[in-house]
Nucleic acid binder design. Structure first.
Lengths: 339, 339
DNA sequence: TTGAAAGCGCTAACAT
DNA sequence: ATGTTAGCGCTTTCAA
């Protein structure tokens, strides 16, 4: 447990018989160095097991080599693959990843302690509604690189954002329910208000109904919160009230799980009595009983792509204003197909 | 997009009419400051929206206020709650969290670039086998704070570690299978070798058999890899070979999902024909068909606790050598109960 | 209770 | 191709 002092660039320079500037040059490949000299430096680095101090480097170069991720959730089946994609993207870009979950935190009033920002990162990834608009706007005006994930920018500022084709995915899904299975009474479960995804999915749902001349019935819409338990009680409520339902579009796969469970508990068969479909195609979707018909959203890619855009923004000052990743219908059995 | 220069401590000092030292004192509460002065400083900080540079602070104080997390996986149902606990723990401790997934990376030969260590963090959380023993030993000898998660230290060094009571949990589970359900041929699915958890669970399995005078039969053990697909094919293999099985202890819930699916596909009923039990009690466990009997491992707490120990280690130089979180049997239906 | 000033370990501009 | 040196923005003695 002896607190050994870590070697500094000066130690390396001394051992290699060069100046610290030269050591810096071979480390950062920022200027040509004679191969023989470079070799000596590398040897010294290896011998001393030298690793440059991130703080010193950051202070001198004014960059942290870190990106930050602000999120509202962390262990949901939806966010988890996104995080995976982000981590992989950051790693590939040679950037460290700082993460922070925003929960019951004070609004940015006076004395607000920003967990991440220009003081400790080179750029920020902001998932869903994890940052107040005011903060977002402040960062934007300040010229700090930010990319939004599954959320559009406030005040239509041109902050780049990446998300999936929610509306058209939902549209395809509900079209399938109507056209192939001829379901008439299709229910929809909303996600939490903080998820813009839910808003677009509902729009797709409504468009599908309208396109087929079917009325939008408010009694067929409830809140599932993108959450198993919440969806479960919502369905229980419908059942108790005797609402007539042919199929339920659960908003996401997580909710679909709760819906299926509620239906089973009520003695209903899926899909014979009531069909169920989800959205996202999370890992579990294929393992539910019955296997879940859903929309594949490339959410891991969403994370990777967000990092790519953020890196572009950091390095060039520009990025794609909007990246919309395509979604794809995944037919399994819960909709009534293949059964 | 104007690249505004961020205010420095000097700007704050000037605006408040004090020295930078005083500003530092009110920020860090490192020495008494007259309340009236402090108020002026705080006002200046708020007015300028000042946030101290992490790099400068780190360089001067020789601490980063960051902890690092090294892991082999990130989006598994097992790791996800751990991460959640770690993030919450770090947030509560006022520390930033840096995460890095170690995948197909070069061994620490010459020129090895350590993603995290003394150069960029105050301490490290190491999950499972995410860091080579050599590196671990080096960090240990260097006196750098490290806490292990779900893994014991190499060479029995006294590096603190936290994990769950795998062996006794498995023992209780298999005891239940034997004593309550009288299953004779109980199969076991191993996890990946990199997961020490699997080793201890197997030990619990073997002890339970032995305690009941039942032979250990190698043909009843295969590798499920803590993975749905792998478990699925392992079970398929058993079925194809006609191995007689009463129940399978899947190693973890993830595998159990694959086992149940394989059994369903083969036309077997769970638990009537073959019972299935898991380990971990992940979120999905209660939503499988049938609901999964398993062992509740407080894995989110495991993450929180690891952070607590790491913080202790950083601040005091000492921590609990071993924290073993208790596990608890969760009886649902897949074992044959309540059906 | 406060200020002055010396670094912390790097990078980068400027010399040579 | 390489060395010198002036900061980067803080914290922390040391004085006052």
């Amino acid at each position: 447990m002896s607190e050994l002092e870590a070697p500094t660039i000066a130690d390396v320079a001394e051992r290699a018989g060069v100046s610290t500037a030269t050591v810096s040059r071979v480390i950062n490949q920022t200027a040509p160095v004679a191969e023989e000299t470079a070799a000596r430096v590398r040897a010294a680095i290896a011998a001393l097991n030298y690793h440059p101090s991130a703080a010193a480097r950051g202070l001198a170069s004014r960059k942290t080599s870190l990106i930050g991720l602000l999120t509202t959730e962390i262990s949901t089946s939806f966010f988890t693959p996104i995080l995976s994609g982000i981590e992989a993207g950051a790693r590939e870009a040679g950037l460290g990843l700082l993460i922070h979950c925003t929960q019951d935190e004070p609004s940015p009033g006076p004395g607000y302690h920003r967990p991440m920002g220009p003081h400790n990162t080179d750029g920020l990834l902001v998932f869903a509604a994890s940052l107040e608009d005011a903060e977002l706007i402040y960062l934007y005006e300040t010229g700090f690189p930010v990319v939004l994930l599954h959320q559009s920018p406030p005040d239509s500022l041109d902050i780049p954002y990446v998300t999936v084709e929610n509306k058209s995915g939902a549209r395809k899904l509900v079209d399938h329910l109507i056209e192939v299975h001829c379901y008439q009474r299709i229910a929809f479960l909303r996600g939490p208000e903080s998820h813009e995804d839910s808003y677009w999915r509902e729009l797709g749902y409504r468009e599908a109904l309208e396109a087929h001349g079917m009325p939008f019935d408010p009694t067929l819409v409830a809140t599932g919160g993108f959450h198993k338990e919440i969806a479960q009680v919502a369905v229980g409520q419908w059942l108790k009230e005797g609402v007539e339902i042919d199929a339920v579009f659960a908003g996401d796969d997580e909710s679909a799980t709760g819906v299926i469970t509620a239906l089973h508990q009520a003695g209903k068969r899926v899909p014979e009595d009531i069909a169920v479909v989800g959205f996202d195609d999370v890992h579990m979707a294929d393992y539910l009983m019955p296997p879940l018909t859903t929309v594949r959203a490339p959410i891991e890619q969403t994370g990777r792509e967000a990092v790519r855009q953020l890196v572009r923004l950091i390095r060039t000052g520009h990025a794609e204003p909007l990246v919309l990743l395509p979604t794809e219908l995944v037919i399994r059995r819960s909709c009534g197909c293949n059964s």
